[in-house]
Nucleic acid binder design. Structure first.
Length: 489
RNA sequence: GCCGCCAUCGUCUAGCGGUUUAGGACAUCGCCCUCUCAAGGCGGAGAUCACGGGUUCAAAUCCCGUUGGCGGCGCCA
């Protein structure tokens, strides 16, 4: 049997969003799992809204995610090219089949204005009937058609739905689905300007590019009978269909901009890792019997199957995504995180954030905060006090300094001197602090906390003694003296 | 209005007729670890499997209906 061929066919009318990524991912995983071919096709027949900018963003986002296509833009295979629908239109690919349908009487020219058609639909709806075009133009004589065309009227082409039958298919995810033909509208397959519509172009391209499995969101279920009827009319074999469940926002409506971040690039900017995004999205609508949560991409490829895909819609949960991202970051070595961080700064144009930061110290600081990083964007705020004069947080000053004025002052004043003679290793510093507490009859906390706030300006941070070691003797003593002056004099 | 899809803990889900006092993950709560914050370990709470009928010796699992949610109904894709 021939290798499966699947496709992701976005329209370049905006950013690549979460829903699109999930569709792309399932196609990608299916292709890789089956040793098939993953095709990328750009559906740019909406001349009003399609932009080159969008195309660029989509290609960039797919590459960033690691969902590399085998065929498509910049990877043209002559037999199936081009991969942009408007280019295919210019090559006359669609016209050929429009003519064929017209000749066979399976489609007809329609001169009705959009307003007239709209009127008919409303009429039908009033009568509690499916909203449909009333087919009046299908009865036009060749003479009448000629007259209209001589007047300069440009018709649309409508597909003639065969009446009194039904269209049935077995969906790979949902099983048996059927529609009565009679509820279907004689839909437009070519606009007045000659550009094919989605439902037609999609079928022609899927056939010509030999797509074997169409995997897409279930918002396309109601387009499917129309498309299948075209396959039949052209005597083409039908592809396998798989409709995945939709991703919802917290309010139960399909995920969209109003629910917050939906563009992939926004997630990139926040410092999410592609593997976390992909892992999370895979879990939305697909799962394994053992409920495994964390997968590497190769594991996803190995274990993915359409039969394990669910058919009920799922709510997008940013909290779990965040957890997963932290999990992925934690599983990396310090060196890997450091590299990822630098690449991320570059990709998001934020290299200035670490201007003048010592790279060796940065590396070690990341090591100290390793378990705390959930997003790459957390890193600068987590470690910036190593590189710039510390900002004393009000709450820290109140809680640690003011409330324990006497003991804090004692600790800092004495330490400013003592630390001149303590070896600046985490171990030695810890011994010093513990001994100091004992000798002065103070709890560990009464000694540790003031030192932490004096050195970092905050109550939260890395292990105190590692923090001091990394800062170095000179800097620590200087910061202690600053704190003494600012808050104890 | 017409057509279609869907329905298990707050969320993602396992379950594909008996092994289920319905399992796991996120979130949440408690305890432990601990110099803070995390991370980690242990444990708790949380689902009359939407509702009502069937089928069957046996149903979360199969069938029908109801309700609810969502989607589509463009010379958008």
């Amino acid at each position: 049997m021939a290798l499966p061929r699947v496709r992701f066919a976005p329209s370049p009318t905006g950013d690549l969003h979460i829903g699109g990524v999930r569709t792309a991912l399932f196609n990608y995983l299916f292709a890789r799992n089956q040793d098939g071919v993953f095709v990328l096709r750009i559906e740019d027949t909406d001349e009003q809204r399609s932009t080159d900018e969008s195309t660029k963003i989509i290609l960039y986002a797919l590459k960033w995610l690691g969902l590399e296509w085998d065929e498509g833009p910049s990877k043209e295979v002559e037999k199936y090219a081009p991969y942009f629908q408007m280019k295919r239109k210019e090559a006359g690919i669609y016209q050929k089949y429009i003519d064929e349908l017209l000749q066979k009487g399976l489609a007809y020219k329609c001169f009705c204005s959009p307003e007239e058609v709209e009127e008919m639909r409303k009429e039908a709806q009033k009568k509690k009937l499916p909203p449909k075009y009333d087919r009046r133009c299908s009865h036009l004589t060749p003479q009448q058609i000629k007259e209209k065309e001589d007047q300069g009227l440009k018709p649309v082409i409508r597909f003639k739905i065969p009446q009194g039958q039904k269209v049935v298919w077995d969906d790979l995810i949902r099983g048996h689905i059927e529609f009565e033909n009679d509820v279907l509208d004689d839909f437009v397959i070519a606009k007045a300007n000659g550009v094919p519509t989605y439902n037609f172009a999609c079928v022609v391209d899927d056939r010509l590019q030999e797509i074997s499995h169409v995997i897409r969101g279930d918002d396309h279920i109601s387009n499917t009978p129309k498309q299948l009827l075209i396959y039949d009319a052209l005597n083409w074999p039908r592809p396998q269909l798989a409709h995945t469940a939709m991703i919802l926002g917290p309010d139960g409506a399909r995920l969209s901009k109003r629910h917050g971040h939906t563009s992939v690039l926004e997630y990139q900017k926040e410092g999410y890792l592609p593997e976390a995004l992909l892992n999370y999205l895979a879990l939305l609508g697909w799962s394994t019997t053992d409920s495994q949560q964390i997968f590497t991409l190769p594991e996803l490829i190995e274990k993915f199957s359409l039969s394990q895909c669910g058919s009920s819609p799922s709510t997008f949960d940013p909290v779990k995504l965040l957890w997963l991202n932290g999990e992925k970051i934690r599983s990396k070595t310090n060196g890997e995180i450091y590299d990822l961080f630098l690449v991320w700064l570059k990709q998001t144009n934020q290299e200035n954030l670490i201007d003048g930061w010592d790279r060796q110290i940065l590396k070690k600081a990341i090591e100290l905060e390793h378990d705390k990083i959930k997003l790459l964007k957390d890193i600068p705020t987590l470690v910036d006090f190593f590189f710039k004069p510390c900002i004393y947080e009000d709450e820290a000053v109140q809680k640690v300094f003011k409330k324990n004025l006497e003991s804090a002052k004692l600790v800092l004043a004495k330490s400013a001197k003592n630390l001149e003679n303590v070896e600046f290793s985490a171990e030695a510093l810890e011994n010093y602090a513990r001994d100091f507490a004992k000798e002065n009859n103070l709890s560990n906390g009464k000694v540790f906390h003031p030192l932490r706030v004096a050195a970092s300006g905050r109550t939260q941070g890395p292990s105190l003694f590692h923090l001091m070691e990394l800062l170095g003797r000179k800097e620590v003593i200087a910061r202690i003296n600053t704190a003494l002056e600012k808050f104890f004099s």
